[in-house]
Every structure is written in structure tokens, then in C-alpha cells.
Design a protein around this nucleic acid. Structure first.
Lengths: 194, 194
DNA sequence: AAACAATGAATGAACAGTCATTCATTAATC
DNA sequence: GATTAATGAATGACTGTTCATTCATTGTTT
């Protein structure tokens, strides 16, 4: 063997790429700007991904996979739907506090119609949403009229929406607090009850 | 006067710009691609806007202003909050049917942290949200714990979220129907009641 | 232990193409 | 002929991608 691959460099590239995409958009996040921010040579980015598009797509897929895995863990120690709402909202708020750019990145990518998740990830999301819906309708925590995509919107997109508007300082420039997550939890829970 | 300005060209530019931004992103929506799609010379776009950024920003401001004006009209013939929810959701669903790219454009721009509305527009939105909140709390259509930004999220962002995911064919590829708007109306109304 | 390949991690100049913007020029109307 | 709407070639900066080259580290040979 020659030199060992510096894993640190890879994570620096990931962070830099997400940061640049959030800050400058996909088109504005040039390979050279990502490489500069990650303190890495331009050509190095092509050692792991055949192109810019693949790099960014992989980052999105990874981020979604993180959330999917987290939710799967929650569903294993089967608890109530209300508890899942609490855990999920806390998860997003925690992410907003420690890695705000990651939340922005995920939300931004999901909002744009030209980026789409892999069929595998969408399948994951469908399955999980259906399981939560079933669980909720058995315990009457979710109204009988609900479909699984509505569950996804309320439990995942609404919290991200709330966080994203706050991080944008859309209404005012104040930090997210415990009160915010409590409000989101209540709004989502009430809405789900139907 | 010499030649009259061809207003038709201007609207063609607007349509083309919105289409390209939605389809290719801000960075990918090049001036030349917009001009080509609008069947207009490249230099013509600089007759009305000093640059690309100003053009797109004006389009966003205009689109938001449309919605603001619509909501102001609704609030003049003062009706119940539930009726406002119905009218607003119908407005968005109508837009989704006839100008899907406009809905995508607005939603996409609002989601990205690097684009921000003018202070005037944000002020409009704050005022309207507050008026709806007041109206709703007087008639108990909106729960006592609600704040105006939460009203905005539920009445504006949630319907757009729903529409956007459908237009993306996120879960499945089916057209929006009457049932969808009815569902959104119910979910939002129930959530607001608290 | 010292010298020497061999390996592959990492670099960045070079390439053809595209970008936003400018402005001298042309075309249409008065 | 005067006015101004409209054009699009030209410009310099930057794009994503390639790949010959350099450099650090390993195992092998002396």
C-alpha cells in the first residue's frame, strides 16, 4: 500500500459541499469553491465521485438515510405515535442547533422539483409512513381519514418548515427554543388526531 | 415616440425565467437560455433589469404580491377564518392547475435561505397573518396558543407543501383532485382550532 | 539499517465550453 | 431624419472535468 486515504478530507469535502450548496445554490456551488473551502485539490473530488452531480446526490441520499435509520430505530422500541412525534421533532430541532446547514440542505433539496431521491429512499419513506399511520390508527392517535403521505407531511415536512423559516429569520431573528419544539409537537399531534 | 415596447415580450420573459429557474435552478437558468425560450435577444433582458438577480428577485416579489393582494381582498369581505382557509387553499390549487411552475417557483424560492423577500413584502405577510390570527381568536376558530407565524405556516406553507410534493410526484404520479384540496382544508382547519 | 523500487494518494495546470454583461449596430416607428 | 426599441457578437471571468505529475508511504533488496 501507498498512502492511506485521509478520511478527514472526505468529511471536509462533505461539509464544504453542503455549506456551499445551501449558501450559493447547486449551480453556485462550484467544484473549485468546494475544494477551496475543504482545503483539497480540485481533482481530488473526482477520486470518489464521477462528477459534481453524483457527489451532491450522494450527500442528499446519505442525509435522508440518516433520518430513515433514526425513525426505524424509534419504531423498533414500539411506542405511541405521540412519542414518535416528540422524538422526531426533537431530532430535527437538535439537528437545527448543531448542524443548521444540514437541515437547510435537506429541506432545500426536497423542495426543488429537479432533485429526486433514489427509488430506494422513497420506498423507505413510504414504508415508514405507512407503519406510523397503521400504528396511529390502531390507537386513535391518527384520524381515520389520514393517508400515509399526509402523515409524512405533518410529521416531517411541517417541523422542517418551521425550522427553516426560523433559520431564515423570515419573521424575526430569534433562536429556536424549547417552546418552539413544544409548539410544533402540539400542532402536529392535534392535526394528526383529526 | 419610435417603436412601442412589446409588452408581450416582457411577459414571455417572465414565463421563461420562472420556467427555467424551476427546471434548472437559479444558477442553471442562464440569461441566454431564458432569452432563447422567450424568443428574445440576450441584451433585451438588460433593458428593464440591471442584472439577472434583479429580474428574478422582481419576479418573486411580484408573485408574493399577487398572493398578498388576493388575501387582502378576501379579508375585506370579512368572513370566517374557515372560509379564508377554503378560499386560500382553492387559490393555491387553482394556481397549481393552471400555472404549476409558478407554485413551484414561489415555494422553491421561499425554501432557499439565500433568497429573501423585500422588507415591504415581509411586512405585508406579518400584517395579514396577524389580522387572520385576531379574527380567528375572536371567533375561536384559532386556538389561544397560536402566534401569527404559526398561522402563516399552516395556512400558506402547508398547502404549498402538499401541492409541491404532488407536482414532484414524490409519492405517486397522480393529478391533484377536489379530494386533495378538501383534505388540506380539513387538516389545516383542525390544526388551527388547536 | 540503508537504499531502492513500487504503489496509489493527492495535486493543479490545461481544456473546451458557458456564464453575465456590454454596447456598437440595426430596424421600426414617428 | 430623428428617436428609440431591439439585436447579438464580443469580452473576460469562471465552469466541470481530465490527467500527467508529484509526493508520501510501503515492502523488498542489499
Amino acid at each position: 500500500m501507498a498512502r492511506a486515504i485521509d478520511e478527514n478530507k472526505l468529511t471536509r469535502i462533505y461539509e464544504a459541499a453542503i455549506y456551499q450548496v445551501v449558501e450559493e445554490g447547486y449551480g453556485g456551488a462550484s467544484i473549485s469553491s468546494i475544494a477551496r473551502k475543504a482545503d483539497v485539490a480540485v481533482g481530488y473530488l473526482y477520486r470518489f465521485y464521477p462528477g459534481k452531480h453524483d457527489l451532491i446526490n450522494h450527500l442528499l441520499d446519505n442525509s435522508i438515510n440518516e433520518i430513515v435509520t433514526e425513525l426505524e430505530l424509534m419504531l423498533e422500541r414500539v411506542i405511541s405515535v405521540n412519542e414518535i412525534v416528540v422524538l422526531l421533532v426533537d431530532y430535527f430541532f437538535n439537528m437545527a442547533q448543531h448542524r443548521p446547514h444540514h437541515v437547510k440542505f435537506i429541506y432545500q433539496m426536497l423542495s426543488q422539483s429537479r432533485f429526486s431521491l433514489s427509488e430506494e429512499r422513497r420506498s423507505n419513506i413510504r414504508d415508514l409512513s405507512r407503519r406510523v399511520l397503521q400504528l396511529g390508527q390502531d390507537s386513535r392517535a391518527i384520524g381515520p381519514r389520514y393517508s400515509y403521505d399526509e402523515v409524512f407531511i405533518l410529521m416531517v415536512m411541517v417541523p422542517m418548515e418551521y425550522i427553516n423559516l426560523n433559520l431564515k429569520s423570515f419573521f424575526d431573528d430569534r433562536p429556536l427554543t424549547e417552546r418552539d419544539s413544544a409548539r410544533v409537537i402540539e400542532i402536529v399531534s392535534v392535526a394528526l388526531r383529526g
